[in-house]
């Protein structure tokens, strides 16, 4: 189980990385943490001409907190993110999601940006970014563009990134008042990819009704996505509504089938985890209100 021969390139700057992408195009693989890519390389499923190691690009490790958003550079490690108080308190949903990502020994190396670029359908970080309406920053020789996360993920391991682009950072909206968050997933084993994961951001109005709700699903279809829930705005933020929302979503999803779960079971998890997370997010939001 050894990789094919490849050229190893270690650029020091984003510009150098972009030059390499221009040179190799889709024949290059970009490695950050390498937790998924390394396995695929060793199995020879990925057979690049060049491996572009971006770990030497200092600016990709940047962290910028603004008023409404926090920007994390691609190379921020998952464990590193968990140790950043500003990020964890500013983006509570990420704080709830990260402990579910892989294992202690993979979070130490795996990056936020790498997980997003890899676009596994059940990965937690893409799901969180989608649920929060975050964005992905991409750089190419032509300049920089920011793509809403909800448009970035296009399918199984497939994103809006073009072959000449590098994911340079992620943009996370900072928590708003009266907004609650919850994240839950179920896997056959601790730390495995979720059979289904549900992330919720919910804002509850002063009168106890739903002002805004975003329900993200991971592991259910071929990409993380946010379910349609607009019809429930204005309904009471209760467990009964949570269950209604989850049941409604479960009816419209078109779940994947794999070795671990069939479509019926994934739908069921959407119901169960959806109800739990929505209820928890409503409670969290209400708690915020009371604290305020």
């Amino acid at each position: 189980m050894k990789p094919v021969a490849f050229e190893y390139c270690r650029p020091d700057t984003v510009e150098e990385a972009l030059e390499l992408l221009k040179e190799f195009g889709s024949d290059a693989s970009i490695i950050s943490g390498g937790l998924s890519l390394g396995a695929m390389l060793n199995m020879r499923l990925v057979r690049p001409k060049a491996l572009i190691d971006i770990n030497g690009i200092d600016e990709l490790g940047n962290f910028d907190a603004g008023d409404a958003t926090i920007r994390t550079g691609t190379l921020i490690r998952q464990a590193g993110a968990m140790a950043m108080p500003a990020l964890m308190s500013g983006v509570p949903l990420l704080a709830k999601a990260l402990p579910h990502v892989g294992h202690y020994q993979t979070r130490s190396r795996g990056t936020l940006g790498g997980s997003v670029a890899h676009a596994d359908p059940s990965a937690e970080i893409p799901l969180t970014l989608v649920t929060l309406s975050g964005a992905v920053t991409l750089r190419s020789p032509g300049g920089s563009r920011e793509v809403p996360a909800r448009e970035f993920f296009q399918g199984l391991l497939t994103t809006d990134r073009r072959a000449d682009e590098l994911v340079t950072g992620l943009t996370w909206p900072i928590r708003r008042g009266q907004t609650g968050y919850a994240f839950e997933e179920l896997a056959q084993r601790h730390g495995d990819f979720a059979i289904a994961a549900v992330a919720v951001e919910a804002t509850v109005a002063g009168d106890g009704t739903i002002a805004d709700v975003s329900v993200g699903l991971g592991g259910v279809e071929d990409r993380p996505f946010v379910a349609a829930t607009a019809g429930f705005v204005g309904k009471p933020a209760t467990e009964a509504t949570a269950s209604d929302i989850a049941n409604t979503i479960a009816e419209v999803v078109d779940p994947m089938v794999d070795l671990q779960a069939n479509a019926d079971y994934r739908r069921q998890l959407v119901r169960v985890l959806g109800t739990r997370t929505l209820t928890a997010a409503f409670d969290d939001a209400t708690g915020q209100q009371e604290a305020a």
Binding site: L35, A39, Q105, R109
Partner: peptide
């Protein structure tokens, strides 16, 4: 396993306990 699951090859690399089968020596 050489695919990053079993953990047998874990070493402390640059201060992080991580899989050494998913790293290349030149890195």
């Amino acid at each position: 396993c050489e695919h990053g699951v079993c953990g047998a090859c874990t070493a402390i690399i640059d201060g992080a306990a991580t899989r050494s089968c998913l790293r290349y020596a030149v890195q």
